[in-house]
């Protein structure tokens, strides 16, 4: 009895100090490997030209400057489509796509998780398999389909396929399953319509899942180049425009780093804001056999 009590006090009695030391050492080692390239990208984006091309190269910036960011804007303003247009395109595609995905996928996830109807298991099985469809596998037929329905060179060609991404539906469904049935039943007895139950009762219960879905979808669309489907310069996305700067190579080393920093800042900030919610959602992300 006394022994049991003692164990209860210490949650992890089997962890030796040596083991703790090694795991912290390993974490710091791996953590540096993960973090240093990003730190270098930020440091490089602040380096003036003479610091980018010195021998031997320095890791940290000595005289930080915002010239590189300034260069990006100058370079972009030289193109015949204003820079703000690329920003608008990407922001528009990202917001509409993410919200559309959130709504449509949640609707379907709700029915799959909370309604018993013939075919639901088959549908869910297909969607789990579809987690493995990489975009490259479907790229060519998708191009043909876009041509057929006349969506080529339109925002729709980038937004609509993102709305049907299987990952978001999958996460939503796993999370919706945890909503107690009694909660929904109570609303139904009060005479609420199914859409109302979904929107007013179910959706507020799964807020953490929204945030996760938003960050995944956001990150995909934010980095979408979409050059396969979009030909008009005024419809092209920000990553595409910025990749043109990087493509110029060594002569624009500073501007390239500035571009990388601009592109990575937004998803990282969103991740930091919603981190705890994301982790909560991922806890229910498992695939049952």
């Amino acid at each position: 009895m006394a022994k049991a009590f003692k164990h209860k006090k210490r949650t992890k009695p089997n962890h030796s100090g040596v083991g703790d030391f090694f795991s912290i050492f390993f974490l710091i080692l791996m953590g540096s490997f993960m973090a240093l390239p990003l730190v270098l990208a930020i440091s490089n984006s602040l380096k003036p030209l003479e610091e980018l091309f010195i021998f031997p190269p320095r890791f940290f910036v000595r005289n930080p400057t915002l010239d590189n960011f300034h260069d990006v804007f100058v370079l972009m303003s030289q193109s015949w489509v204003p820079f703000s247009r690329y920003i608008f395109n990407t922001v528009f595609i990202t917001i509409v796509g993410t919200l559309g995905h959130l709504f449509v996928a949640s609707l379907c996830a709700y029915a799959l998780a909370k309604h018993k109807f013939p075919g639901r298991n088959v549908i869910f099985w297909i969607i789990v398999t579809a987690l493995m469809f990489s975009t490259q596998v479907t790229a060519i037929p998708n191009y043909l389909i876009m041509t057929k329905i006349g969506w080529l060179d339109k925002y729709l060609s980038l937004i609509v396929p993102a709305i049907a991404k299987p990952l978001g539906l999958f996460l939503m469904k796993q999370f919706m399953e945890q909503i107690p049935d009694s909660l929904l039943e109570a609303a139904r007895i009060d005479g609420a319509r199914e859409v109302t139950v979904f929107w007013k009762i179910a959706m507020p219960q799964v807020k953490p899942a929204w945030l996760t879905l938003i960050i995944f979808c956001f990150q995909d669309l934010w980095n979408l180049q979409g050059s396969n489907y979009i030909f008009s310069e005024e419809l092209k996305t920000l990553p595409y425009a910025l990749s043109q700067i990087s493509a110029a190579g060594i002569s624009r080393a500073g501007a390239t780093s500035a571009v990388a920093v601009i592109m990575m800042a937004v998803p990282i900030i969103i991740f930091v804001i919603s981190q705890s919610n994301i982790i909560e959602t991922m806890a229910s992300s498992g695939i049952k056999e």
Binding site: A111, H115, V137, T138, P141, P161
Partner: peptide, 26 residues
């Protein structure tokens, strides 16, 4: 189930059009 099928319809139509059909076409 009519409601269930209605709820899953928007997603399923898009999914079939941009994921399932492309794989079969491929």
């Amino acid at each position: 189930n009519k409601i269930s099928y209605l709820l899953i319809a928007p997603y399923c139509i898009l999914f079939i059009l941009f994921y399932l059909v492309p794989v079969c076409m491929s």
